[in-house]
Design a protein around this nucleic acid. Structure first.
Lengths: 240, 240
DNA sequence: TGACGATGACTGACTAGTCAGTCATAAATT
DNA sequence: AATTTATGACTGACTAGTCAGTCATCGTCA
């Protein structure tokens, strides 16, 4: 009982130096982008910078803890801002999470549309695309975003909907187009594949999941696996 | 929150009549002797029954909310027991979760080992196996357990470890054996497939995830998809 | 067989703590 | 000085886990 019914959330650090945060930010070689002169940033720039810091921190926390177990206090601390600042940028935890996933998907997709359809066989096209996916997503922190969507999707229908609409359906349509091209050119034997573009990307998705769950038990050579998969679809490759 | 002294045992689950004890005795003791075959169960039997009720309820809650967002109060209510009763069977929330997943995996694996290797081609073997998987797991509530493991695995290394050891590594070994048999018999052309048994099961895993995330957006014929996938591996089938 | 105390399964109010969100105050900027 | 932006102490709602008490069941004995 003699516990502390009063002053509950007493963070031990409570030194009365509020300027500290700011001073620290200035000198701290933290996350802040390398603004060389570190000269005056106007308000809009600062706000944008902090917002980004919050987004980065939140992404990190959500990825490693999931939505429910993530504490806003931790996000604030990691971002180097006070908790209240978060509420200057986001309505609440939930909409913050949804907006985060949403904006995270954009560069994810953008990254996938980077390399323009290089001339060559359809197999080259698909291979370039998949290798890009594996290099940029499956084997990086970004892959965790995909896993996060799988994990939290059922509880955030808005996210699952958005993800399906903006990524899955478009991605599959693209895959289907490539498959049909392959069929038309005679590179792909099985015409039914066009009905299930999922098959084409399945190993890549598996690689994403594998990395975050079992990488430490048994490393997986995602690139070689995908090449083998392409051999099944396009026929044995010449080898190297 | 204030109005819950009445105990409301009317929940969809088993909810034996026995929960009536206190409240009913206090208010209307006579009504009790209504119907209910109420087979005599001794203490041990009852305990086992309640334990099972708790397990079922917990599984349901964990699947639909995830570990962190699940409330023990809800599990208790769904199981028709008091919260304290849970602690007669499990040490705490975390070990309860781990034990749940662990015991859930056993029938999952058992269900996969049911049909003995029927005589026939390797393709028939694999197809029977996969169709069984899709029917028994991918398209049922059990698939959600798999998704739950994917979702919570990174935060429960013990679960990921166990799952890898008891399911993944064994399953892949079995797949590899089948693939090697297929190669030896000349049914499978690409010998590299034995290096990546993951490819064989990838579409089935994708089906599991698809069902829980996108089924309502676009239903997926997992069986036909898998057959198409087998065509890639074993060569075109006669069709139907 | 029936009465009766012992047992322990079960209960749920309660404790101790957590954390999302608020807001009075202070710093920075205009 | 006025206004905008940031802070972090604080609040209130919520929850994992506890435990003193209850009562159905069971063993024992008349």
């Amino acid at each position: 009982m003699s516990k502390t019914p009063t002053r509950t959330s007493g963070h031990p650090v409570s030194a009365k130096r509020r300027a500290t945060s700011r001073a620290a930010r200035a000198s701290d070689p933290k996350v802040v982008s390398a603004e060389l002169p570190l000269i005056k940033l106007n308000r809009a720039e600062r706000a944008a910078e902090r917002r980004q810091a919050i987004i980065d921190a939140a992404m990190e926390e959500f990825i490693s803890r999931g939505f429910a177990a993530t504490r806003l206090d931790d996000i604030a601390k990691r971002a180097g801002v006070a908790k209240g600042t978060i509420y200057l940028h986001f309505k609440d935890k939930e909409s913050m999470f949804e907006e985060l996933i949403r904006t995270a998907i954009v560069p994810l997709v953008a990254r996938m549309q980077g390399p323009p359809p290089a001339s060559g066989t359809v197999r080259d096209l698909v291979e370039a695309f998949a290798l890009n996916f594996i290099k940029e997503i499956a084997t990086t922190r970004r892959g965790d975003i995909v896993r996060l969507i799988v994990a939290e999707g059922p509880r955030f229908p808005a996210i699952a909907d958005f993800y399906y609409r903006e990524v899955v359906s478009k991605g599959l349509a693209g895959m289907r187009a490539m498959i049909e091209l392959g069929i038309a050119r005679g590179e792909i034997r099985n015409a039914n594949l066009a009905k299930f573009p999922q098959i084409l990307v399945a190993p890549a998705m598996i690689a994403v999941i594998w990395q975050s769950l079992f990488a430490k038990h048994a490393p997986l050579d995602a690139v070689e696996m995908f090449r083998t998969h392409l051999d099944l679809i396009f026929g044995e490759r010449r080898t190297a």
